[in-house]
Write a protein that binds this DNA or RNA. Structure first.
Lengths: 359, 359
DNA sequence: TTGAAAGCGCTAACAT
DNA sequence: ATGTTAGCGCTTTCAA
């Protein structure tokens, strides 16, 4: 009941008050930058804090109804440059507003999401950000009902109709990739997707099929391999694809990390990119432009996504009454050197986008 | 003072008590798995919780002296597979013990460390883990004085004499690399280090110099390039090294990520690995073995490091009286295909370790 | 086995 | 401008 066992408690607001010879609400006032505190007393309090090495107890503050000045972020995957970029930009945006970030990772364990959301939203954090690849879930509904500030960072475009979300034109991005590849003359295009419960993976696969259909190209299930957005899975998928009796002339990986794996598999078999194989990624993480050859990919505005989400959340925290809206950021196909027409392809007709319209 | 503005409060222990028709200390008892609660009442309470969608408020619990069942982890760099691996193993180890992980990232901003440590150690977490590349700091001393449970995860071997730390034989790892390279016949060995305030970088550089000296090889400052353990910096450093009028025949990068960059720079210039250039990394992150050619590197037991640190911390939490000790895990030079004797090197003498003894 | 009550550190009325 | 006081949700004595 006193403090955690065996541990001497650290100085509290009352200790400071005693040391400074003031009431402890005065201490609270200087803590919260209140207007009406006599400069002298303020000084005394500040000094006392200094001497005692006082630090506020965030929990107590939060419990008492104050703000914790902390926002929570739940991500499913660390170690992906995609996540890292977003986290960093969120962190920076929050820092300028005087907020701290607490990060929780589910490591792909779906059920942990609710645990962390509960944890964070019951006082610990003033708001939460979610960066998870899944669709609508009950705990979001709860947050909404509680009118608790939160915003979703999404890499796809299928959402419950009520959550504030920042997302990108990711589906179009996938379509762009396919158009580009098809226009180059590729007919056998491999696709390395994600787990089927990753909405973005499903979305990209859907775009893949739609683009094929729009060009009257047949869909060959053998050309679709599931990954999980990790390097390893990309490696396995690329291996399977290139082991096919009739391997693809191009591979579209649903994220850059898996595209990097395609590079490595190709190289280990003497397959040259882009001469023998074209490859396209998704996300445009920093490393993509450094690859050899530089990777053609769909740029997601990672920094801006994080920043926007953070800003939206901060707004929601300041003004819980006004519901945050959805923002869609543009993706962009950045064409680098990892694609070219297939080796056997004789360019019989001039490049045209006409045939791929209406996807 | 009630709840955060505009937000309906969620169910509390009292609501549950009312709903179940018991006193609220009884609710607390079932919450904490107390022995002496009548099964009937327990059921009623559990049902009431269910109905009300009750979740404990961790802060309140922690404030009241209970455990928060949460441990904090402060890291300086996300998006590095090194960090990711460790975080994941920590997470897993904690999960089995019923603890949650809260992650805070400093993104290299040294001053944020103290902020987060304060945050976590003042009630929020039952203990903290630190994964930062820096040397001894005042806030650690404070933790020690407060007898607050913490453990350092370190990639080097220079420590204050009192903090519990799990580390590796990293210096020896660096020496091993140099011995290997020198034995192969390399005389001009480039080194890509880290920021000078990263202790591990200094340590590896020191090992580099010592190994050179031990073999009577001269030290050429031009062969040493600073990086910051990120891909980009490795790219720049490798570029500088290979631009030298007399470029190195081998490059030792202080971590794998920077070694990957060496691969890409080399490839972009038609330099073949290992024929024209040998390269060695450090850490053995998963991707290393997939590179082409597979990267020779120093394996750090990432998973075990995380697991050990977590276990140590848990022990310290259970028994704050007994100080945790230091554990040193072994590194291992894993030789893959990215090294061979330099092109011009005629192997005049049989391979021997004699000349590199005593480093 | 259960209830009542104190108190964790703090904020926010409410007094003065 | 400052002090007093009532909680925030919970754990933990202490009584019963």
């Amino acid at each position: 009941m006193s403090d955690k066992p065996g541990r001497p408690r650290s100085a509290t607001i009352k200790d400071v008050a005693r040391e400074a010879g003031v009431s402890y609400s005065t201490v609270s006032r200087v803590l919260n930058d209140y207007r009406h505190v006599h400069p002298d007393k303020r000084r005394r309090v500040l000094d006392a804090m200094e001497r005692l090495g006082y630090t506020v107890n965030l929990q107590a503050r939060s419990l008492a109804g104050g703000r914790s000045q902390m926002v929570g972020l739940v991500v499913h995957d660390l170690g992906n440059p995609y996540t890292a970029q977003i986290v960093q930009s969120i962190d920076e945006e929050l820092a300028t507003a005087g907020y701290e970030l607490a990060l929780h990772t589910t490591h792909g364990h779906h059920h942990k999401e609710a645990v962390y959301v509960d944890l964070l939203t019951h006082g610990l954090a003033d708001g939460v950000l979610m960066l998870i690849p899944l669709g609508p879930t009950p705990y979001l509904r709860q947050l909404r009902d509680r009118n608790y500030p939160y915003v979703i960072l999404s890499d796809h475009q299928q959402h419950d109709g009520y959550s504030p979300v920042v997302t990108t034109t990711s589906r179009q991005g996938a379509v762009d990739v396919m158009q580009c590849l098809i226009e180059l003359g590729h007919r056998r295009i491999g696709f390395i997707g994600g787990r089927h419960d990753f909405v973005s993976a499903a979305e990209r696969l859907d775009a893949y099929r739609a683009a094929l259909a729009a060009c009257n190209l047949s869909f060959d299930p053998a050309l679709v391999q599931a990954g999980d957005y990790q390097y390893r899975s990309g490696y396995a998928a690329a291996t399977a694809l290139l082991d096919l009796p009739q391997p693809p002339t191009a591979i579209f990986a649903a994220n850059d990390l898996m595209a990097f794996a395609v590079y490595d598999v190709a190289r280990s078999r003497g397959i040259r990119i882009p001469k023998d194989l074209s490859v396209v990624g998704f996300d445009d993480v920093p490393q993509a432009s450094y690859m050899h050859p530089p990777l053609t990919t769909v740029r997601q505005p990672l920094i801006e996504m994080g920043r926007t989400a953070a800003r939206l959340l901060l707004q929601a925290i300041e003004n819980p009454a006004q519901p945050a809206d959805m923002v869609v950021l543009p993706t962009e196909l950045v064409i680098r050197d990892s694609c070219q027409p297939p080796a056997h392809f004789s360019r019989r007709f001039p490049s045209t986008t006409a045939e791929t319209k209406g996807v």
